[in-house]
Design a protein around this nucleic acid. Sequence first.
DNA 1: CTGAAATTGATAATCATTATCAAAAGAATA
DNA 2: TATTCTTTTGATAATGATTATCAATTTCAG
Lengths: 141, 141
Amino acid sequence: MKIDVIKKLKEHGLKVTPQRVTILNAINEYGHANIDEIYQKAKATHYSMSLATVYKNVTSLVELNLLKELSLNSFKSKYEIVKEPHSHLVCKKCGSVEDIELSQEIEQNAAALASIKDFEAQDIEVEIYGLCRECREQGRV
Amino acid sequence: MKIDVIKKLKEHGLKVTPQRVTILNAINEYGHANIDEIYQKAKATHYSMSLATVYKNVTSLVELNLLKELSLNSFKSKYEIVKEPHSHLVCKKCGSVEDIELSQEIEQNAAALASIKDFEAQDIEVEIYGLCRECREQGRV
DNA sequence: CTGAAATTGATAATCATTATCAAAAGAATA
DNA sequence: TATTCTTTTGATAATGATTATCAATTTCAG
Ligand SMILES: [Mn+2]
Ligand SMILES: [Mn+2]
Ligand SMILES: [Zn+2]
Ligand SMILES: [Zn+2]
């Protein structure tokens, strides 16, 4: 899936720097990537890329809601480009993350329960932890 | 809710030390607590408690599935005593965590979707992020 | 009770993230 | 295109969080 990164940056009032474009493209290629993965891939394209620049940009892009952070048990947070709401399959062994679309009933059920508790629900995170096919096949338990 | 901590420890083959008992009681009182909260409360009961001891015990208790870790966006992980599966309301402002019981449809829906992707689902995490009543009332946006 | 094995507390080492700041680059404007 | 103002970057220092180390202490099975 191709993303018009430059347009996205302008929409959010951020200057279009080659570093930012590279970082967003790196995340987009991975689908879901942690800071180190982003840094490594971005560095391959843009040699002078600094780790501090990756941190700073990822943080501000999350605040601007252009990136979404996935806080995972046992692994460093992964980041993805914000798109339609969806859920994730997370492998406990290798940490891989895959998108899935959970039915909308859940969102509704969740929103209803939240309001009963007088809680203003804003977004729902669903992560299914388990083992991916590759890890099961390789007997990595 | 009272928990028989000593019994739990023995069941999991861990030695019953006053530090462990204190740590588990601290978590139980909070319901959901991060490392620092556990440390502070435990220290109040057991003066010589070391932060390293809290880290070591929490880590091993999570591995033994006696504690569950909640990895949250923007806040340090919180820990809770493992009980029946349930979901959480997480306030983006104050970080408070409250239990809710989502319908079982979700578990089933999730398990079904996971198997389609050839993924062996083990446990599901649902966090609803938003604003708690207290934070809304105090106009903390 | 004893003694082997596990645990603890103190703290050093390591790893992750944020802060600092001078130099470089983006973009608005003339 | 040149000027200027502001943001961003890269290098690295500072801070914060977590893990490792290890001698002393404690648990608990026998
Ligand atoms: Mn995703
Ligand atoms: Mn809970
Ligand atoms: Zn895997
Ligand atoms: Zn709140």
